[in-house]
Amino acid sequence: MESVALVVNGVARTVEVEPRRLLVQLIREDLGLTGTHVGCDTSQCGACTVHMDGVAVKSCTVLAVQADGSSVTTIEGMAPEGGLHPLQAAFWEKHGLQCGFCTPGMIMTAADLLASDTDPDDDAIRHALEGNFCRCTGYHNIVAAIREAANKMQVGAATSAEGAPR
């Protein structure tokens, strides 16, 4: 057994794991954060996407021991309890989900995209979703939701900049 210390959604955690344990298993089974899903066994579907040290990763393709010392954000940590991240709000608003299984991974990937490209066009959004499958929505409303979130976040950024003390 190896000891893994990591910060998950802002909380420091230490977990004893076998080396073969995957980060997604640690998140789901050891920490009970079941918002991160497993949709495949070949690293294709993206349902397991979380942020590790600020970037989106497929947590089914990272060993828990590889995440030792890292900071991990899952869907549960995207907004304070009771609040919604603009992406979460936009997925709701634009009907960007049906069964909801792919949704957490979609949101985590989209958040990585919007961190580096605040105003992506539809092509850029669709390209960014290359590693996230959705079988329900045909992607149409997912793309619309991410576009909407990008707009809202830009407006938000502009207002907070204006409101900043000079």
Partner: peptide, 9 residues
């Protein structure tokens, strides 16, 4: 290559 997540790792 792959996707965002793959390129991140």
């Amino acid at each position: 290559i792959g996707d965002i997540q793959v390129r991140n790792r």
